[in-house]
Design a protein around this nucleic acid. Structure first.
Lengths: 336, 336
DNA sequence: TCAATTATTGCAATCGATTGAATTTCTTAT
DNA sequence: ATAAGAAATTCAATCGATTGCAATAATTGA
């Protein structure tokens, strides 16, 4: 059913039908009714693509997610989709994986589909490959990067202050009398490096590093894929060899922390009595395991809500700052 | 950059440029080169919507997911997106929630966007509201329902035989000497009802029900939202009151099973020594908790891979049967 | 009743592609 | 050199909408 079919049936022109559809003024009430009736009868739905061609607006938003199977990425996608749909936009979502080349590929699809804006979610969107691709393919459309920065004219960032959050985790542990702290991370993403800096700052503030009896340990080269529980187990085993007196471990992710707790338990070390463990991400896994995990919540829902609204502000011409920083929250549970 | 801009620049007509883009025959090699060079230079990308208008093909596939935050739904979305993108289609994915009205709403958006096919994932797509909406809005495009049936001309189903799977779970438990079995479910979805039937059949086959000492218990009205761990705890507490001698519990989902195990442990009942527990869904949570959960894997990846290929077969005119049934697999871990 | 307004409606161009048919250009053979 | 045939290119219509401007219909006042 096209606008012409309706027009013919109603004995009017397509323009009139169009005006009824978009309820513009200057249509006689009787014709409006007649046309509307046919519209309903034939269950007419406008071809959004054809309309978009004239109006030069696709009403599409592109969403690139590094791994849709990661729970906080999914949470983000969910929130953004909600907000965008509410505003009449339709989201095109891709799960890109860590690979930069595939990211570039998806960015090209977003260009072809003429998205009006885009949101990137993940830890690996700050790379040069992505930057070039955005510059080349998305140069004139606004892009919001969640937890990252791209440093291009039309890009915006929503960040979560994990550095400060980690610092607060250190404070929490020292406050509970812990003295030998370690930071465990699996891969050097910008986010993980930030947490590392926060850890250092926290140590300094607590006087641990300066007092000479503080310990910082970072374990690399363990087996198991990044972000896996397996990896956490290996790294913890290695850490315990190097630093047997450790009594507090900060892990870069909940998955790592779960592996950490598993290894500690396996070696007969009581959590939290002998060693306290803190994760990051507030995953359901961390909530359900035993002991349940104290974690640094990086608020994926709030962050992506902010990202969605930032993009909508840009699209609707409201003034927007290019950078927004939100705060984390420590969720205390049994592991500390 | 449009096809006309390139044409003017190259001193040829738009038709020629179009033919170069779609590399059709009958273009002199020298002009092809000249045009291609400009195409590259200006980084031209065709407007997919405009092309779609002429070709009457959007190359869009609609995906409706009940809850994108549920891990096996997400896994499904991921697999389908991969396959579709590989074949040149772009997925439009919506997270609909359980509500039938919202599902109908999203189905209308799919119609507006002129999707060429759709895939529905979730347990609540068999309702009358959805049926009507599909009939009205998606009548001429193929729809594949994962784990459900819609009984309309252009619809297809990929099912997983959870009934038989549950039957096998009962067999596994009786084989291990368990005699007092219970089935725990939170909500009467078609899938859960199927598992219930499988449980009954399994009981009959094992001679338990007929021998007079088998037990079937279904607990309703417990607190906690559907699908939550909390709910599993409550239902288990209630179950233990009604049936203190239970020694094997089959749960409709892993979440329920995790709550079940938690409650058993809380009451000092050893898992699996005193009571064996089996979940369904093979979630990461079930894999990580203590004791790790024996579970019925309903193969979301395989099921959705099959669904994607079924839809592609229909779209590309290959012969397709309207129904495909796959088998589950029991993953044995510590809880049995 | 008729011109002057004003309220409705229709015409035709446009968006950015594709494609069958018509036309122009280039070969080749006579 | 020229007609015939093949090769390359262009023309013009089309897809399904929107919208400024022109045209028509209805209303008003004198």
């Amino acid at each position: 059913m096209t606008i012409y079919d309706i027009a013919r049936e109603a004995g009017v022109s397509a323009s009139t039908v169009s005006r009824v559809i978009n309820n513009k003024a200057g249509i006689k009430e009787s014709t409006r009714k007649k046309v509307q009736k046919l519209l309903d009868e034939y269950n007419y739905t406008p071809d959004v693509a054809a309309r978009g061609l004239v109006l030069q607006a696709s009403k599409f938003i592109g969403i690139l997610i590094e791994d849709i199977r990661v729970s906080h990425h999914t949470e983000s996608a969910y929130v953004i989709e909600q907000e965008m749909t509410r505003q009449g936009y339709t989201c095109i979502t891709f799960s890109t994986g860590a690979d930069g080349k595939r990211k570039a590929q998806y960015i090209e699809i977003l260009e072809q589909r003429r998205v009006e804006g885009a949101i990137f979610i993940g830890s690996m969107f700050g790379t040069e490959a992505v930057r070039r691709s955005v510059e080349q393919h998305l140069s004139n459309i606004p892009v919001v990067i969640v937890n990252g920065t791209l440093d291009l004219p039309n890009t915006y960032s929503v960040l979560i202050d994990e550095e400060r959050g980690t610092e607060e985790c250190v404070a929490l542990l020292t406050q509970k009398g812990r003295k030998q702290l370690a930071y465990l991370m699996d891969v050097a993403t910008p986010a993980n490096e930030k947490k590392k800096r926060g850890f250092h700052t926290g140590m300094l503030r607590s006087g641990l590093e300066s007092a000479g009896h503080s310990i910082y340990a970072e374990v690399d080269g363990a087996t198991g894929p990044r972000g896996s529980v397996e990896r956490g187990r290996c790294e913890t085993a290695e850490l315990l060899k190097r630093l047997p007196d450790v009594d507090g471990i900060l892990c870069a992710t909940d998955m790592l922390a779960i592996g950490c707790v598993q290894e500690l338990k396996r070696q007969g070390i009581a959590v939290p009595e002998q060693v306290a463990v803190i994760g990051v991400d507030n995953t359901l896994h961390g909530q359900l395991c035993t002991p349940s995990l104290t974690t640094l919540d990086n608020k994926p829902g709030e962050v992506s809500f902010a990202a969605a609204n930032m993009l909508l502000d840009v699209l609707q011409g409201r003034p927007v700052s290019h950078k927004l920083m939100l705060l984390t929250e420590i969720i205390q549970r049994e592991s500390t």
